[in-house]
């Protein structure tokens, strides 16, 4: 299992630089008080991981990995685990940077808005993952590409629009009104949708022939 994760991480390591540049751009834009692009960063993780499917497909890794011990199960599991780990890591970095940017710009930290924005972004990112991965496993990354772009850009535009024109703090107020329950409910929903998506992908891949 660990081996499959290492392989996926090795494949995307060249994209870490791009991710680093984007985080840097986000920090600079944030400090200059320009557009908040923090919501793009976790989405990038999924996009990068989706590109790893193309490399797998090109060199027929999916067929080869079945010849390895528990290859059918572990290759699917590692895609989910690697994507989620990377997304959580980027979310954490973005949250820390957002705190710093908020403090530098306003001398206070707007914890609620930052956390709610990132929470929403994480939810959206996991939604993309949970919808796209089974589609990729079923139809292949090339056929699923159009769907991926429509879905990702749709969500990015919606979030971009919301962050530009709508004060997201009302979500924070709503959430604080519902206390911690809504967060727990959303976390449960996120875990459930990732689990269901994983099981569907695993089922599709377990029947796949090459």
């Amino acid at each position: 299992m660990i081996g499959f994760i290492k392989k996926d991480l090795a494949m995307i390591k060249s994209n870490f630089k791009l991710l680093g540049v984007l985080i840097f751009v986000y920090a600079i834009m944030g400090l200059m008080g320009k557009m908040d692009i923090s919501f793009i960063l976790p989405f990038m993780c999924v996009m990068i991981m989706i590109s790893s499917f193309s490399y797998d497909n090109y060199n027929k890794w999916d067929a080869y990995c079945i010849s390895l011990p528990n290859g059918r199960k572990n290759s699917v599991k590692s895609k989910y685990i690697t994507t989620i780990l990377m997304t959580l890591m980027v979310c954490l970095i973005t949250i820390i940077l957002s705190f710093i940017i908020s403090y530098v710009n306003t001398k206070t930290i707007n914890y609620e808005q930052i956390l709610v924005t990132m929470f929403g972004t994480l939810f959206g990112t996991l939604l993309v993952l949970t919808i796209m991965y089974p589609i990729i496993y079923k139809f292949g990354v090339e056929k699923a590409r159009i769907g991926i772009f429509l879905l990702v850009f749709g969500i990015v535009i919606v979030f971009g629009f919301l962050s530009q024109y709508i004060d997201l703090s009302f979500i924070a107020k709503t959430l604080s009104f519902l206390e911690n329950y809504i967060v727990i409910i959303l976390v449960i929903i996120m875990i459930a949708m990732v689990y269901i998506s994983y099981k569907v992908s695993e089922k599709i891949f377990s029947k796949k022939e090459f």
């Binding site: 081996g3 499959f4 994760i5 090795a10 060199n59 080869y64 010849s67 572990n74």
Partner: peptide
């Protein structure tokens, strides 16, 4: 306990033999 060489199926070509070594350490 099986070693395989398959026709045209292998690790993605952006990886290095070092990456294969690290990967296989966690598989076999």
């Amino acid at each position: 306990d099986i070693g395989v060489v398959l026709d045209d199926m292998f690790f993605p070509e952006i990886l290095t033999p070092d990456d294969i070594n690290n990967t296989m350490k966690g598989i076999y």
